[in-house]
Amino acid sequence: MSVERPTLGQVTHIVGDRLQGRISNHHLALLGVSFVGFFLILPIIFLIPESLNLGSSTPFESYRRAMDSIYVDAFVRSFIFGLATTAVTLSLAYLLAYYLTFAARRVRIVMTLIIVPLWIAYVIRYFGILLFLSPAGPFANLTGIDPGLLFTSPAVILGLANVYLPFAVLPLYNSLNAINKELIDASRVLGADKWWTIIKIIFPLSLPGLVAAGLIVFILAAGSFLGPAVLGGPQQAMIANVIAKAFLENFNIQFASALAIIYTILLVGFLIAFNTVFDIQEVLGDI
């Protein structure tokens, strides 16, 4: 008596039959969410008990310490640098997005040029800026001046703006491009010159993209580690640097966790506040 070996096709067929009806698409979605749940959300939640330091002689000590002016400074600085970076980035991004929408001949090539930097590791891009601003670097060599910008706040903000610029251009471009060209024609015919048309028609209609871009850049910039680490000095330390230092250099897990939790709460709070004005789902809807 001979027994046939099953073929791959037959096996998939049988497995497929068995699975069908047992595993629905809901399960697949659940699988994805569970993975993130187990390997990101849960780990973060586990930081909470760490931070609270319960069971030791000094519970909540970490949170008390976080109220020290140095750390509050770091939080405030992160917020301010975030705002400043957003302002600079949005201005530059608007110029590029406007160019792409209304003036560029070969949109694909220009767009690729804007996206390519995203494929390059942050650490390298910051390295390039560091080189550029360095007193022995190309800029100083070529022009003979040392701008003296290295390790100052403007350097960090410029660096952050440079690195996150492509993230801002994309939603802005989508918004601008979606404007019906006949609206611009109509505005001209109705008597408005180019500047009035930009102010009264184009800009208001590009606001959704502007808001989305601003949100993305702010969140990324405020939470940046590498920017201040590479381009800034101790005076420019932002919250990510403080948290990392607490963990990696001082091995103070409790404190680092506390700072991380506070940061997350502030971020969520910010998003909720933002949502009351702007409705996040709509803003990020196009992504």
């Binding site: 006949e182 609206l183 109509a186 505005s187 015919v189 408005a192 010159d193």
Partner: peptide, 20 residues
Amino acid sequence: LPPEKRNIGMAFQSTALFPH
């Protein structure tokens, strides 16, 4: 002359009414 200086009125195929 650019369009805004010609004193013409125009209605477009898509009406081009400003949505905002």
